[in-house]
Structures are given as structure tokens and as C-alpha cells.
Simulated assay, not measured.
Amino acid sequence: MSLHGVRIAGTGSCLPERVVTNADLEKRLDTIDEWIRSRTGIGERRWASEDEATSDFAIPAGRRALEAAGCDPADVDFVICATLTPDMPMPSTAGLIQRGLNLEKAGGFDLSSACAGFVHALTVGTNYVRTGSAKNVLVVGAETMTKVLDHSDRATAVIFADGAGAALLQPAPAGESDVLASRYGLRGDDEVLLLKGGGSRYPTTHESVDEKLHLIFMEGRATFRFAVKTFASLITETCDDAGIAPQDLKLIVPHQVNMRIIEAACTRAKVSTDKCFLNIETVGNTSAASVPIALDDAVRAGKLERGDLVLMLAFGGGLSWSSILLRW
């Protein structure tokens, strides 16, 4: 079998119109702007309205990625949507994207790996293209995290936000762009970072709603320790797999989880935070949408040129983690 190089041909993103500042949160929570900024690096975030759902952001993000790549929707072979907040359990949000963009021949599915989902989905989509199973794979990361937030919980209500990002994968000419390495991992855990309600273990009942089982829970200190160690390892080990040094990277696009986590991980990996593209201050943590939104922002800001080495990495509930390193 002849294997193809793979490139990201276009990116896109979409955010809700509603801006929620730290000053807005001061009015409803026992918190202040200084506390939020010092612990998260976030100054404002975007929240969906009550009548907006995940696909309302995923579809425009996908459309912009196709436009950036100059790809006709009729030519898309596959769509993968990474999300933990689908519009509904069935049909898949990927199916709603397929319908919304009129992707006439596309197959697809949703992928659930929390904040690590988009980077996982890029690896899956890469293998469809690399093996010749598909020529155009649309990968979307989309979330409406505010639908599953406990808005009285200071630990999570100040962090999470909504939005979507997308990337179109295509075959790359020989010797040009390509995916050089990827890593992924999973550690089954139902204590540190979780959303219990709604599945077969804890189906929806009056009791489960009263107990807030349908809302995100995060044990902050354990999450911080795990994230710093995992981020640092992903940087060094993924670069090792590709045969490069972290210093050779033009850009790191990390999951916009928390500024303190990113800074601590970079210090541990001996990489300058100047290599990281960060938009957490104005976008917040959008879970699976975080990396593709930041990537699209970086591309449109002119931060990447063909041939540059870029590393994307994320971790999330599961606990799960993933990375992908490519020559742009």
C-alpha cells in the first residue's frame, strides 16, 4: 500500500456573540478579576445563548475551513466531530454538520475524548487520508460547555466556554507537508474530572438532576498535577518520535486549559512559552474546541508558513491525552 503525506489545507472557527467578562462573574460568584486572572489567565470568555447548541458553532466553523481550503462540500469524504456536549445523543453532531454543510457523500461520526478529542480526531482523520481511504476529511472540535456547567461552582464556572474550530485534511504532495508524529494515552478515572449523569450508569432522573450529576466536576489540584506532567511529557516525547528537538518547533498550539498549567509544563519541558500560541485570555477553555480555535487564530494571524513545525497537544477527562506534530 502506498501511503500519502497529509496536510491541513484550511482552518475555521466560530464563537458565540455573548462575551462574559470576569467583572460579569464577580456579580454572581464569590470571586474577583484578580483571582481569576492569577489562577487561570482568563479575562473573558464566550458563552452560548439558551437556544444555541453545539452544531450552531460547528457548522460555521466547518464552512470556514472548507472555504479556506477552496474545497467544494460535495468533495468531502468524511467528517469527524470531537465533542462531549453533542446536540443530542442521536443523531450524531457529525450528522448534523453533514446535513448543515450539504456534504453529499460524507460519512462520519462523533468522537468523545473530552478536551483531548480534537487532537485524537486529527490523528484518526490523518490515517483515513494517509491510507487513501479518503481525500478530504473535515475534523471539527465543538462544545457548548456552559450547558453542563455548575454556574455556582467557582472552580469551573470561571474557566469553561463555548465555540468550535475545524480543519480540513488532504493528501500532501511528496516531500512537502506531513504529519511526523502523534501520541495518545488513556487512564480510566472517574474521580478527578468527570460528568457522571446521562449515561447508562447514572441515567437521567429527578435524583440525578438534584445531585448535579449532569454537571462538570473537577478536582483542581489533582487535575493541575496531572496536566503539567502530561503536557511536559507530550512535548518532549512527541518531538523525540519525530527526531527533532523542542527548540526546532515554530509553534506549539496547546489546549487552552489554564495559563499556570501551560507555563509550568513549558518550564518542565525546557521550552519557552513564547513558542506557544495562546488565546485563553479572551476565549477561555472550550474543551475539544480549544486547539482548533487557537490553530485557526494562529493561521489567520500569519503565525505559520509552509514548512514550519507545529505541535498540537491536549489532555482531558478520561483521563485522556493526545498530541500531533506536523510539518505545515
Rank of each mutant, 00 (worst) to 15 (best):
E34I: 03
D56K: 08
D51W: 06
E52L: 06
A9M: 01
A74F: 02
D51I: 07
R39N: 03
G43F: 06
S55H: 12
A23R: 15
L66N: 01
R64A: 12
A53E: 07
D56M: 11
F57E: 05
I32W: 10
G43I: 00
G5S: 11
D72T: 05
T31Y: 02
W47I: 06
C71E: 14
G12T: 00
R45M: 09
G10P: 04
T21F: 11
D77G: 12
I36G: 00
W47T: 04
G12Y: 03
P16N: 05
T31G: 00
G41M: 01
N22A: 11
S38F: 00
H4P: 00
L25F: 10
S38M: 05
C14N: 02
S55M: 09
T40N: 00
V76L: 07
D77S: 05
R7I: 03
R28T: 15
G70T: 04
G12H: 03
T21D: 06
S13A: 13
W35K: 02
T54L: 07
E67A: 14
G43M: 10
I8D: 01
E17H: 14
D24L: 14
G62A: 12
G41A: 04
R28S: 14
D33K: 08
D24T: 12
T54V: 14
C14I: 00
A48K: 10
T40V: 02
R63N: 07
R63Y: 10
I42A: 02
I32C: 13
R28I: 13
D77E: 07
A74R: 15
D75P: 03
I36E: 01
G43T: 07
R46M: 02
C14L: 01
R39L: 02
D56Q: 09
E26H: 10
A68R: 11
D56R: 13
G70A: 05
A48R: 07
G12P: 03
D72S: 12
R63W: 12
E17Q: 13
E26D: 08
E17C: 06
G10L: 06
D72C: 12
V6M: 10
F57D: 04
D30I: 08
T54N: 13
I32Q: 08
I8A: 03
R45Y: 08
E34F: 06
F78R: 03
L3P: 00
I59F: 12
V19A: 12
D72F: 10
T40L: 01
W35D: 02
D51M: 06
A58Q: 11
G10F: 02
G12S: 09
A69M: 06
I32T: 13
D24V: 12
E44K: 15
E26I: 10
A23K: 15
A9C: 06
A9T: 01
A74D: 15
E34Q: 11
F78T: 10
R28G: 03
V76G: 07
A69T: 01
V19P: 10
T11K: 02
E44A: 15
I32M: 03
L25K: 12
A74N: 13
E50P: 04
R7Q: 15
T11Y: 12
A65L: 02
F78K: 00
R18E: 14
T21E: 09
G41C: 00
R63T: 09
E50N: 09
D75G: 05
G12N: 05
A68I: 02
R18H: 15
V19C: 13
I8L: 12
E67H: 09
E17A: 14
I36H: 03
